[in-house]
């Protein structure tokens, strides 16, 4: 036990030094203040907006992919409460060379229950492939399937994200 504690105590200063060095590194220009802060600390803050620059596994966001498209999704609030309206912030990331989409359709269903939502959400473009989606509600606990549909020059592209709500 003492050996384990000793090892841990030795690691902590090393972690602190690494974080300090990361904080000193320059950040990409054009990043928002929260994004810049997140990059400096080496993590994405849960309340930071979604961005295509955020790598897979970034905490607090979903990143479904399909046919070269990727979405970075942050629910507001998180975790999603049962039976209360929530919103999504979405960054749509097109394949290289494709223009950012102008529109986005969002829906969700519970495949096991064979029903969808009782409300029709609305996605409002924020510019640069980012959207704010309002009017969603998961009115039951369980497994929901979040569906995003993007109209592209090659036809619609659909991205799905499983969501477990408790």
């Amino acid at each position: 036990m003492a050996r384990v504690l000793g090892a841990l105590l030795a690691v902590v200063p090393a972690m602190a030094a690494a974080a300090s060095a990361a904080a000193a590194r320059p950040v990409a220009t054009g990043a928002s203040a929260p994004e810049a802060a997140a990059r400096r600390s080496g993590i994405a803050r849960a309340d930071a907006p979604p961005s295509c620059s955020q790598p897979r596994g970034t905490p607090g966001r979903w990143m479904p992919e399909a046919q070269g498209w990727r979405a970075v999704i942050v629910p507001r609030p998180a975790p999603i409460p049962v039976g209360r309206h929530f919103a999504l912030e979405v960054a749509l990331c097109p394949p290289a060379g494709a223009p950012p989409p102008a529109t986005l359709k969002v829906d969700a269903d519970m495949p096991a229950h064979r029903h969808g939502m009782n409300y029709r959400p609305q996605a409002v473009p924020q510019g640069g492939g980012r959207f704010r989606v309002d009017g969603l509600m998961f009115h039951m606990p369980g497994y929901w399937r979040l569906m995003l549909e993007v109209e592209t020059a090659d036809g619609p592209r659909r991205l799905e994200q499983p969501v477990e709500v408790r």
Binding site: H85, H115, G116, N118, Y119, R120, P121, Q122, D134, G135
Partner: peptide, 15 residues
Amino acid sequence: AAEVLKTRHVVRQHR
């Protein structure tokens, strides 16, 4: 307002 979201987004479905 948050309280009008339900009225704005509710949708009538066959089910």
